[in-house]
């Protein structure tokens, strides 16, 4: 009997960690009060939160279903363009545009998933990479709607929550934090739900899952749709925050697709806290590198990504979260490794 109420038991076990995460979120919420509201650090931290949220959205399909997508820019850009085009042409609030973007991203995910889910591993990653690139090409050439390579400027409306428009970055910090909390809750909920249980089976052995009756395609599809919708929504927050974007900024491989996958992989793929840890490392590090070199060496950030990724894969492929765990056990604060298998 106990075995058959598993999802419930998982969430009960997680309660102390839920409190910890709530405390972390509360602490994060008061951080900008101590920083210059116009300042550089609020901007960097906002970007960090946005990428943590994106990494978490990616984690739903990449971490739970083990589908390593390198095409999430497709959803990100669709959200960004949908909302901004509606805002420019019809004065529609980005909060509403956000839902339109999510709906469109779900459609894109549906179209991409049907052919790509038949592929495994590297082939899946490459196919998704191509899908993201295809949308970048479309955005570049469909000038009448997207503005083409020139890009779009988000109309500025001084300090209005309804129009998601602020002169200072601080309110965006809170919006990004709220987005991160929301996506994390969704991730957590899926992870401990019946769907999460099926996704674990898919991740551990797709063929065995199929022969015990798991509809692996449908499980992966659900994860993909939720992930796409979340990514599109965060895309809207991102472009409201940056005011300006072009196809390379929202559909780019290095700027978006690889960066948000990297955030989750570096932090700890499939873990709740992983994308947050990953974003805290990747985004500020990139800023520091760019600041130190003053933009003299273009494209160095991609080099930095590569270096971080190689380092993580070599030292601890399960990411920094697992590395911290290992170090903690190594220091002897948690003696008796016998419990490992039982948990």
């Amino acid at each position: 009997m106990s075995a058959l109420s598993l999802p419930k038991r998982c969430s009960a076990l997680a309660r102390p960690r839920a409190l910890l995460l709530a405390a972390l979120a509360a602490a994060a919420a008061i951080v900008p009060l101590f920083l210059d509201p116009q300042g550089y650090w609020v901007r960097v931290l906002t970007l960090t939160l946005i990428f943590a949220a994106l990494g978490q959205a990616w984690n739903i399909v990449g971490g739970l279903a083990n589908q390593i997508s390198l095409g999430h820019a497709a959803y990100f850009g669709v959200g960004a363009y949908a909302s901004t085009i509606l805002l420019i042409n019809f004065g529609l609030s980005p909060w509403i545009g956000l839902f339109v973007g999510m709906a469109l991203a779900v459609v894109v995910a549906l179209v991409l998933s049907v052919p790509t889910f038949r592929l495994k591993g590297h082939y899946f990653a490459l196919a998704t990479l191509a899908a993201g690139e295809a949308l970048r090409v479309i955005a570049n050439s469909w000038q009448g709607v997207t503005g083409g390579p020139v890009g779009l400027s988000v109309p500025f409306m001084p300090d209005s929550f309804w129009m998601m428009s602020y002169g200072a970055p601080r309110p965006f910090y809170w919006i990004a934090l709220a987005a991160l909390v929301l996506v994390t809750l969704v991730f957590w909920w899926i992870k401990s739900s019946a769907l999460g249980y099926r996704l674990r089976a898919v991740k551990e052995n797709e063929q065995a899952a199929e022969v015990v009756g798991v509809n692996t395609f449908r499980a992966k599809l659900w994860a993909s749709l939720v992930s796409a919708a979340a990514t599109a929504a965060i895309g809207v927050v991102y472009v409201q925050f940056t005011y300006f974007f072009d196809p390379d900024a929202v559909f780019g491989v290095a700027t978006v697709s690889v960066r948000l996958a990297l955030v989750a992989i570096v932090g700890g793929i499939g873990t709740v806290i992983g994308p947050v840890v990953g974003a805290l490392v990747v985004v500020p590090l990139e800023e520091l590198v760019n600041a130190a070199l003053q933009g003299q060496v273009a494209g160095l950030s991609a080099f930095v990504y590569g270096a971080i990724l190689i380092a993580v894969i070599l030292v601890e492929p399960r990411g920094l979260v697992a590395l911290f765990g290992r170090l903690r056990r190594g220091l002897g604060r948690r003696p008796g490794g016998a419990g490992e298998a039982g948990r």
Binding site: A3, L4, L6, A194, Y197, R198, A201, A209, V212, G213, V214, N215
Partner: peptide, 9 residues
Amino acid sequence: ENLAIGAHA
């Protein structure tokens, strides 16, 4: 969990 997945699915 291995056993339950069958009943679950």
